[in-house]
Structure formats: C-alpha cells, structure tokens
Design a protein around this nucleic acid. Structure first.
Lengths: 165, 165
DNA sequence: TATTGTTATACTCTATAACTATA
DNA sequence: TATAGTTATAGAGTATAACAATA
C-alpha cells in the first residue's frame, strides 16, 4: 500500500466517500470561521455523548466549569463568557442548583448580583466531567501532534479570547 | 501610556470589564473545543449581521457556497459537510430554490439523488456574500497576522476536515 | 435490504421584551 | 437612569421516525 486513502481514491477515478475531496476544494473549507464551526459541531456531539453518563451537556458542563473558578463569577459574566443571553443562564444555573452542584451566593458589594459557586459535589462532578471532555477532545485532535495542539490553542485564544470589538 | 489594558486594570486592583481575566485562568479557556465554540459564536453573529442585507444567514450562505462547487453536490453531501441532518437541508434548499439561486437537478447515475447547482443569479449573490463574510472574518481575525491566519487555517483543516471516526 | 429525499413531530436552543430589585 | 436577575413567549434550530421512490 502506497499513498493516502484520498490519493488511492483519486487514482481509481472517483472521490472518497461523501465527496470530501470536492469539499476540500470549495471556498468554504478555506474559511477559518467555517472550520471553527465544523470543529465545534463535531466536538460538541462527541462531548455531549460522553457527558450524558454524568447527566451533563456541554452547556451545563461549561457553567459548572466556570462555577469552579475561585471566587465564583456573576451570572452576567457567565453569559458573556459563554456567548449566551443572560436569560438563558437562569435555567442552566437552576438545573445545576437543584442538583446541589452549584449555589447562588449574595454579592456583598452589589446586592443585585448573584455569584455562582460550585459546591463540593459540583467540584467532584466537574473532575469526572473534565475527564470525559478530555477523552472526547482527544478524538477530535487525533490528527494533531502535541506541538500542533499547543499552537492551535494559542491561536484560538488570540482569536476568541481577546477583548470584544 | 505603558502596558496593556489588562495590566492597567490589574494595577488598579480590579479585573478588566466582565472579569475576562478570571476567565482566562479557568480550565475552560484552555480547551480547544471551547475556544472553537466561542470563535464560532462570535463569528456567526458577525457574519449573520452582514449577510442580512443579502437576505442570507451563515447556514443558507454555506449551502449556496457548496452549490457553487463545479458539478454540484447531493443533498446528502451537503448534510455531511455542514454537520446537519438531511431533513434540515430540505428547507434550506427550498428557500434558495424559490429565490432562483439554486436548482435541484436529476443525477443521471442515481435517480434517487438530486444534485444542487447554483444558478447564474446564485453565483452572483455568492460573490457578494463572500465579500460580506470576508469582512466579518476580518473582524474576528483582527489580532492575527497573515502568517498566524495561515497556520490557524491549516491546523483547523487538519482538525475538522479529516475523515470521520 | 439499503439509501435518497421528504414530511411530520417534538424537542432544544435562542432572541426579545418586560418586570423587580437594586444601584 | 441604568443594571442584574428573572419570567414569558415566540422563533429558530435540531433530532427522530416514518414514508415513497429508487438502488
């Protein structure tokens, strides 16, 4: 066997399954935004299926992760970090709070604000959840070396984590 | 003025707006999947707002883009590339077809399949749409050099465009 | 038997506006 | 007057199963 599967398919005069070869030549596949969207779609599906055993999804897992940040974060902060509307945070925090995983604490410096903290149970579940998410991410990144993963992480941080417009 | 805005904020003893500093230290912000999801959220919002003038969204724009690939693609292919269920493609193609932007053609080699082709009007609109999308992407990538953009594109292609599990 | 496109349906997610309590 | 959280509601997106036509 010589050459890649795609080269072999091309040598046989047809595209690989699903016509992925033609996609690779479309303008879309050179758009960083499209690639990020595809990476996200494939990745959340993989993570959701692994988080299901813990009765979590990527969305609730993300809230739990931020609730584990020392000092906690306000619901406003959660909305901003997760690119969700503040009204959507309510149900997510409600669900975790009813399971005893997080709690809303009063902010002594601003009584309008509620600071979300993970409970001990929440931190325990978060530890299991990060393992599940890491295994899912391992699948998504299977074609990248450690060095490539670090470079990709740095570039994405620069793209997605820098101050807004 | 010396130092970054974040350093200045830290020097004043508080976090930058929205507590972004604390986010940067959370485990979440080191997950490539989370960063890809954030990049996608911010990017699609920017692109959608610019595509609105053309009566398109990122989803319909993506279908139009693939319809412009020479030879066209089956609806099954569209679903696979866009990570959507085949049943969702129907309404997207319907909408574009009713506007005369794409057409369903019979596949002579498989009469079950319909090949989606962009019309001349569709190709014209696609040209305007790619400009709009490029301007939106420019905002998302404003902190990256050309070299960094090329590296990011290559890494994302490797991550999101390689054969499935 | 399996696959393509399609329809129908229910479910989740998302966006918007309004309300309350605080600031 | 503005902001944090909340509620209600409508709209958009998504997943599933079933069906007809074709392979």
């Amino acid at each position: 066997m010589t050459g890649t599967a795609q080269e072999n398919a091309a040598a046989r005069g047809r595209e690989p399954a699903g016509g992925a070869g033609r996609l690779a030549r479309s303008g879309l596949s050179n758009e960083i935004q499209f690639l990020a969207a595809r990476a996200r779609s494939l990745g959340t599906a993989r993570a959701d299926s692994r988080l299901a055993a813990l009765d979590l999804k990527v969305r609730s897992y993300s809230v739990l992760a931020l609730a584990c940040v020392p000092g906690g974060l306000s619901q406003r902060d959660l909305a901003e970090y997760l690119c969700l509307d503040p009204s959507q945070i309510v149900a997510l925090v409600d669900g975790l709070e009813q399971r005893g995983l997080v709690e809303r604490r009063a902010d002594p410096r601003d009584r309008r604000s509620r600071v979300i903290h993970a409970t001990a149970a929440g931190k325990n579940l978060y530890a299991s959840a990060t393992d599940a998410v890491r295994r899912a991410e391992e699948v998504s990144l299977r074609n990248l070396t450690d060095g490539e993963r670090n470079r990709l992480r740095g570039l994405l941080r620069k793209m997605a984590l820098t101050p807004a417009d």
